[in-house]
Design a protein around this nucleic acid. Structure first.
Lengths: 331, 331
DNA sequence: TTGAAAGCGCTAACAT
DNA sequence: ATGTTAGCGCTTTCAA
């Protein structure tokens, strides 16, 4: 790898001049610039990012970190793409980790990122790492949270209108005549689950439909819990006529048991899932789902993070993005 | 962020001693070590990776890059997880990019990685970037290719036994009595497509079944091409009784048209897909598919890359992993 | 318009 | 066992 020095030598100028050229400093003679540029090209020189980062003060290193809980979840892959695109568009780089719901890994990765000297972090927090996150905030590392916040903490975040999204979905079900609608939520404690549950309640209230507590269950974000809970629900004597699933892994699990049970969708059970998936349309029948704008979430998160890096003391903001109900054939 | 100097000051030793302690150098008095460690903890010191990288010669920077064509493809997310885990287990870090099948992005990302000073690169090559890759190899940057090789280039790679995998799948179809089996491949020119096609042929030959060229089509790796081609195939008067799909996006597309056409699986058409997907089991009916060990591919790739970084001149190797036919309900 | 020199945080060769 | 020093590739005063 060619260095500044090599280029300087070749162009017969000082390294300072080369530095000026590659940084588009105006104070350099056009002729000199041309000569230097030629040398740069010939040597295929590119400035070492880590030498720059070393020299440059924190906050200008042009490096951010992204930490997601589960890259297997298609929602997060959209987020990742959004983050990536926005980051590179701003001439930053991103390093990313997925901690697979594992607390120790998350902690390790966060440490790695700090050692890598990131200017800021985008994190989709999980219950396990709120302690770690609080610590980061205390250290004044710029952070934006996505998908869910941490109660009682003042921090930038971008989320989706979970409550409204959920109520839209349930309203659709109600409009189709369903009165016994089950809700299979994710982990009960996390804000998104609660919000989606609220939305479920909102819709019932709006249409004055009594909610049956027996139809409300919480699991986690493994497809297994969707499978098991839906089985329990659907084998009741007075079973629900529709399922509203709180996240896409649960939806997948529920679908599995519906097929196992030989139930017809939507005549035997209707189903709508929170989180659309790229292959929803290939399901049989194509799934009605609530789309979260993951790509946009990623982009917004980067935008906020870069703003905060620029201006560390501005007050925290929260951006809420709309969901979209995509009606296909399961309702 | 505390630096070596800060710790040294606090512990009343030289920075060298601190460096020794954090690098587990034996030549340091246990008492001194204790004192230093205490200071390290108190200051929450962690060595700056980029300062280390700057100091350390290329090949020992403990940073590798991963470039995948399409993070939306579940196969690659498994690869990513495998790479991540193996990388961190070896005390390396990884930066990754996904170029979304876009040549310019790929080129940009590769440049970024080089500027980031990676010790090596793991790439799932696409037709568009072979030029770029050749250039990298000329520059002696350690590289390992995954999923597919580049004809005529000597480089480490890890792949899957595509040919055998495909023939297994087709043999299964044949064993169920199918004689008119269509093959919908990905992009015709890429090695994996050809190999899978070979496997398709192998199975026919083995059971002495004539292959009907009209049943063989190539598309790309978009679900749209699966949708369109399968529609064409299935609307023939003498239509195939089974579909063998060359990649998972094609499978998804084919599924979409099968459902649109109101065809029953497997009685009207059987289908098996190359590439299993986490939600295959939630499909209706659950999909029979060929599983590629993406996670293992990722791990192997890292293993090979690290070996090559250690020993840049060893001869190139190729590791071939087995696929696995998972029979569910579509055959 | 250009260059010399200091220094970012660290490691390693060389002294002591 | 510990310290001194040079230098990795770069940016940034400061001087010319």
């Amino acid at each position: 790898m060619a260095s500044l020095k090599d280029v300087a030598q070749k162009a017969n100028v000082s390294i300072t001049t080369v530095s000026r050229v590659i940084n588009n400093n105006k104070n350099v003679n056009p002729d000199t610039r041309r000569i230097v540029l030629k040398a740069v090209k010939e040597l295929d020189f590119r400035p070492s990012k880590f030498a720059q980062r070393l020299r440059v003060k924190s906050g200008k290193r042009k490096l951010v970190g992204l930490i997601v809980p589960d890259i297997q979840n298609p929602f997060y892959v959209d987020v990742v793409r959004g983050v990536e695109d926005m980051v590179y568009a701003n001439d930053y780089a991103v390093i990313m980790c997925n901690f697979a719901q594992d607390e120790k890994k998350a902690s390790l990765y966060i440490d790695i990122m700090r050692a890598e000297g990131v200017d800021g972090l985008i994190i989709a927090p999980t219950i396990h790492i709120v302690g770690k996150i609080k610590e980061l905030i205390k250290n004044a590392l710029p952070i934006v949270l996505i998908d869910r916040g941490i109660p009682g903490i003042d921090v930038d975040m971008v989320e989706v209108d979970n409550r409204k999204g959920a109520s839209n979905a349930v309203e659709l079900l109600i409009s189709k005549g369903h009165k016994r609608i089950a809700y299979i939520g994710g982990i009960k404690e996390i804000p998104t689950s609660k919000l989606r549950y609220q939305g479920y309640l909102d819709a019932h209230k709006k249409y004055k439909i009594k909610v049956d507590k027996d139809l409300i269950e919480f699991g986690n974000s493994k497809s297994e819990s969707g499978r098991i809970i839906s089985e329990k629900l659907l084998s009741k004597k007075n079973r629900p006529t529709a399922l509203f699933c709180g996240n896409n892994l649960i939806t997948l699990g529920a679908l599995e048991t519906i097929h196992n049970l030989g139930l017809k969708i939507p005549s035997d059970v209707a189903i709508v899932g929170f989180d659309d998936m790229p292959w929803s349309i290939s399901l049989n029948p194509p799934l009605t789902a609530i789309f979260q704008p993951g790509y946009e979430i990623g982009r917004s998160a980067v935008r906020m993070l870069l703003d905060r890096i620029d201006e560390p003391n501005k007050t925290c903001a929260k951006v809420t993005l709309k969901t979209q109900l995509i009606e296909r054939k399961t309702t």
